[in-house]
Design a protein around this nucleic acid. Structure first.
Lengths: 139, 139
DNA sequence: ATGTATGCAAAACATTTGCACCTGG
DNA sequence: CCAGGTGCAAATGTTTTGCATACAT
């Protein structure tokens, strides 16, 4: 039951929060903008205001339930946090997002932070390119 | 003469463009928001509209003269392109930005893109942390 | 001269906030 | 019951655009 998760995070298990969590859990692709979530809820016949979605997503982020990414699109995208940290590779043409982890890169990041006297808190690594399908399409 | 640079980029050497280029060349810290550039020009007694600054910075970016970065601050920052590609480490407290290059990370990025069938076009790597001064300050 | 650039004000966007009403525990 | 959550509309902050005027070549 998701309401447990919410309570553990110190948030009341309200209907909008449960619905938003559900949408994110079932999301495929996993990365959604606030607007995407809003439309998904409308499609499911749920009537939740966009402002609430932003508020809830921000709370979820603070609680560690979701991550927010600022890809080049201008709109922030959100994804539910399951499993471990990962970075992203985004197709600039079709928007497809793949996830990857590279321990060597992670270790080098820590070394670099140390070398510059920084206490590393987080990082953002996004590769932008063209995926196989888009590259082979002749447009 | 900067006007050469502009003409090479296919842009007329107008006064606003020259002034903006100057500001970016002399900038320290090297990373400025559009607003920063605007204020710097006002300080120098130049009267350039903010809209022009955005237009010019966008053209400069397209021409490869400057790079635009979306750090977590919400506002885009611009820096002049001298020398080679580099990534950034940003202090979340005072905003200080350091630049670094790590050839191992670069190589792993290329490998990862290949492994996922992507043609790598660009990437964005930003480390966020606390710099030595901010870490030692007891607030 | 003439095609481009610019300045200004207004528009467009994504996101946040104030406030009166509703709801979960 | 009542602190906290929500919806709506309005505000915010950044970036973009339309259009009449000004400028580089």
């Amino acid at each position: 039951m998701d309401s447990q998760e919410l309570k553990r995070a110190g948030l009341k298990a309200t209907l909008p929060r449960l619905r938003i969590l559900e949408i994110l859990e079932r999301a495929d692709p996993r990365h959604m903008t606030a607007e995407d979530v809003y439309k998904a809820l409308l499609d499911h016949g749920e009537d939740v205001g966009l402002a609430t979605i932003y508020r809830v997503l921000t709370q979820f982020e603070a609680a560690g339930l979701v991550s927010r990414h600022n890809f080049e699109s201008g709109q922030a995208v959100f994804e539910i946090n399951r499993g471990r940290h990962h970075d992203h590779i985004v197709c600039m043409q079709c928007g497809k997002v793949e996830e990857f982890v590279d321990e060597v890169i992670e270790q080098h990041q820590r070394d670099i932070a140390g070398r510059y006297g920084f206490e590393l808190i987080e990082h953002s690594l996004v590769l932008y390119g063209k995926c196989r399908q888009c590259a082979s399409r002749k447009n």
